[in-house]
Design a protein around this nucleic acid. Sequence first.
DNA 1: TAAAGATGTCATATATATCTGACATATTAA
DNA 2: TTAATATGTCAGATATATATGACATCTTTA
Lengths: 62, 62
Amino acid sequence: MNRVKDYRKQAGLTQFELAQKVAVARQTINLVENDKYNPSLDLCLRLARALHTDLNHLFWEA
Amino acid sequence: MNRVKDYRKQAGLTQFELAQKVAVARQTINLVENDKYNPSLDLCLRLARALHTDLNHLFWEA
DNA sequence: TAAAGATGTCATATATATCTGACATATTAA
DNA sequence: TTAATATGTCAGATATATATGACATCTTTA
């Protein structure tokens, strides 16, 4: 239950546009948003920067 | 340049003990601490919980 | 000292993240 | 309604995270 989709929509980006920003395939964004797998830390960092937030906001639940 | 080693030492754990807590091999902890590769988000989350901290403290640099 | 424990590293094997290409459906715009 | 765009998903291929076993070095303790 990460917050990638929320932050992406708030940024007005499509899955494809976000994928380009972080240099992965669109399918990868789709799978991450739907918790279909487990992204690498490096991808998580790129997502957080592309969405102007940080790791905790995207992926941490207290 | 993550902070896993700092938090592990502060917790008084060896690489082997931390590895057991998060259910990976000792070598995996060693490689993560020395930035030899790119752990999965799931492992990052387990490390953060085992070390009583969060993703940003372990892996985020402003 | 010597022995035990901790760490760094290698080589090989396996599981899985990620890619490419494709197609179906849903949503939005002409 | 049609055309274009966005999303969800599948199958097959490749790259890489992680495991296992082993060994060397360094540090700590008996």
